[in-house]
Design a protein around this nucleic acid. Structure first.
Length: 221
DNA sequence: GAGGAGATCGTCT
DNA sequence: GACGATCTCCTCT
């Protein structure tokens, strides 16, 4: 069963080395599941486990932003691995990606959903959501179950975060490994795209309540 | 409960 | 000038 762990009960997360990202986005997307996204704010730390990702393959992938070649907007995807690519979509939302593959080769992973661990009150404030006294899963889920939502919960914007290095604790936005063991992983088609839809490039932790999309099978009630 | 449309603006044609 | 790697709200059933 999935329930938020107390921070004391988890091992401290350690940053993931750059080499981890210097691989095919399909591998990186799969292996990022279970890792922890961390935002250091003056008021405290935000932390949430990555439970859903999508791989975008670069110039050969018609659905990827990098498909048409390098531009000012997508330059990070063509740069070295382990850096943040943030884009603004539909005039409303920011979405968080991490660059993959060596400098000069495009590729990236979109972070689609998180399971909140620490700083839940701050996430709710960022989302302008009022949490109840002891929030239940559906409320927590609404904080970070979707790329636009999680970006808002973590205060991620393009001006603030595009181009940041996620491999160093020195930054205020990084990804760590706390030793969490991921169980079964399921794949599916990517969401919200109109091209190259026949590739199972979406990865989720099987049975995890916090994946995006429609309400998952009832749990914890 | 399900389905559809509007929001709102940066980026590229 | 069109549209997008989304979310929310509203309407209809």
């Amino acid at each position: 069963m999935t329930h938020p762990n107390r921070s004391e009960e988890r091992r401290a997360a350690k940053p993931i080395v750059r080499g981890f990202y210097n691989r095919d986005p399909r591998i990186v997307a799969r292996e990022l599941l279970g890792k922890v996204l961390i935002r250091e704010e003056r008021e405290g730390r935000l932390a949430a486990r990555i439970v859903e990702t999508e791989a975008y393959l670069g110039t050969d992938d018609a659905a990827a932003h990098s498909a048409a070649g390098k531009t000012a907007r997508n330059a990070v995807l063509f740069g070295p691995p382990g850096f943040v690519y943030v884009y603004f979509i539909y005039g409303v939302h920011y979405c968080l990606n991490v660059s993959c593959l060596p400098d000069g080769t495009a590729g990236g992973v979109l972070i689609r959903a998180l399971e909140p661990l620490e700083g839940i009150a701050m996430m709710a404030r960022n989302r302008e959501i009022e949490l109840s006294e002891s929030p239940r899963v559906p409320e927590l889920r609404s904080l970070t179950s979707g790329p636009g939502r999680l970006a808002e919960a973590f205060g991620i914007t393009r001006p603030r975060d595009n181009g940041k290095d996620v491999t160093s604790k020195a930054g205020d936005l990084w990804i760590g490994d706390d030793g969490y063991a991921v169980g079964e992983i399921v794949t599916g088609p990517r969401v919200g795209i109109t091209k190259a839809m026949d590739h199972p490039l979406r990865f989720m932790i099987a049975g995890n309540t916090y994946v995006s999309g429609k309400r998952p099978a009832a749990s914890g009630r």
